[in-house]
Design a protein around this nucleic acid. Sequence first.
DNA 1: GATCTTCTGTGCGCTAGCGCACATACACCG
DNA 2: CGGTGTATGTGCGCTAGCGCACAGAAGATC
Lengths: 268, 268
Amino acid sequence: MPLLPSSSQNHLLAALPQAEFALLEAHLELVALPLGKMLYEPGTQLQHAYFPTTAIVSLHYVTESGASAETAGVGNEGVVGISLFMGGDTTSSSAVVQTAGHAYRLERRRLKQEFDRGSLMQRLLLRYTQALMTQMSQTAACNRHHSVEQQLCRWLLLTYDRVSSRELVITQELIAGMLGVRREGVTEAAGNLQREGFISYRRGHISVLDKAGLESRACECYAVVKKELNRLLSDVQYRQEGVAPAAFDNRAGLSGTSIRQDSARRSG
Amino acid sequence: MPLLPSSSQNHLLAALPQAEFALLEAHLELVALPLGKMLYEPGTQLQHAYFPTTAIVSLHYVTESGASAETAGVGNEGVVGISLFMGGDTTSSSAVVQTAGHAYRLERRRLKQEFDRGSLMQRLLLRYTQALMTQMSQTAACNRHHSVEQQLCRWLLLTYDRVSSRELVITQELIAGMLGVRREGVTEAAGNLQREGFISYRRGHISVLDKAGLESRACECYAVVKKELNRLLSDVQYRQEGVAPAAFDNRAGLSGTSIRQDSARRSG
DNA sequence: GATCTTCTGTGCGCTAGCGCACATACACCG
DNA sequence: CGGTGTATGTGCGCTAGCGCACAGAAGATC
């Protein structure tokens, strides 16, 4: 169900009151973000902030030895380019498009200008930044203590919540890169989940069949991150009702999330 | 070499210009932070921000199963209570005193008030927050890819930079809790480091003998975090020269950091 | 439709780190 | 100064995940 591109698909932009939004609108530029595109690399000066609508961006760190690990993901609930308004300009991590799609981008100076006005935009961005910190610290703990399968479930659920389709377009190899584990480990875990009917997949495509099932196998980290995102961004008012989802989960409020029975019926 | 308590021992406070500092000074309250004191728990409303001088605070997350992992540490380079000005009020992690010492605390409302003025304080706090994010994401990557020994070195170095004494007062058991690993793992790694003359320890005390040695065994994460802290907090002007260190490392600019030869001479 | 690329499945030996169980020994305190 | 609690040392079996190597299979390309 591809919607027409609209800046209100991004929760942060959608939360701006008309007056504030009007100031920005003319400077928002819709850009396509292809899979794998690098929005910034460690140490480079970012020129734009990106407000994803359908794209998902992965913030990750690559070690000296070439190993990588995602520290947080950004979908239409947030913005890529925190360092622009935090004052650091650059970061030691990089940002890569993990799910192709679109984003609205805003020039560095415009963002900073708006932020420094101490507007609602500032408040939104700071709250979002805190949610991002929760993701990062949760990822740190998760990397230490939870199994590959648990982490795969967490990752699938977080990604699933950020897209409007049931099918994620990504290879196991790339997922392994995000989680910082072996591709074979992902293959094995995904195999188990498929055998149990929670997901189904084919080369480069993963479909979530039973969200509740995945949740039962995920570690707590998914729930913690999701709850925190909802909490921190929930009390904002939306400019237009019915356009932007009121929760992190893009399907929140829609019909039941589990389609397991449906597909079982279809295939049986 | 215990200095008299002074708010300028905290880098953020020391960086405020006289005019701004004057507004806060009367509201800063010196408090002693004993080892193990919990400054906040997940979900609780924090009443004060803490600006450590000699104390070190560990931000960490405890999993449902009781396992824990530090996501970042805060010494006199920073402040505990980010969520107060970020707008979230609470966090999903907790803050525990890891090295006993002192801190200046500031009431929630005062901090928020000062922050909202858009003063230099705001700029400082945001930059520090970004440095904190670097720590968190680096910890996530480190937890995934680096060995216990590497992580122990990283942790020792970061802690060492935050204290003014050569000796850290902490048990291996507590360190294990910070790193989220087994106590035995720390014992083994520490044993190796001691055998090589990089550190020496006895029940609850660890002395750094050869900082360069530790650096050679640490993962890159130490350098990345330290560099980022220095970068983000380096261009601030200090109120009084010669009082506050200009770098994260409390010993920066002092005589050589390695005392290995000395101690070898002494014991040989 | 044949070819070629890339993704997924599987096996196997290896290692780091875990969990547990004690032994030892230091430091404090009465 | 001896006793006691706590910190550290060590051994051992176990498992998750790694690294590697290769087989099979699904799509893309022409």
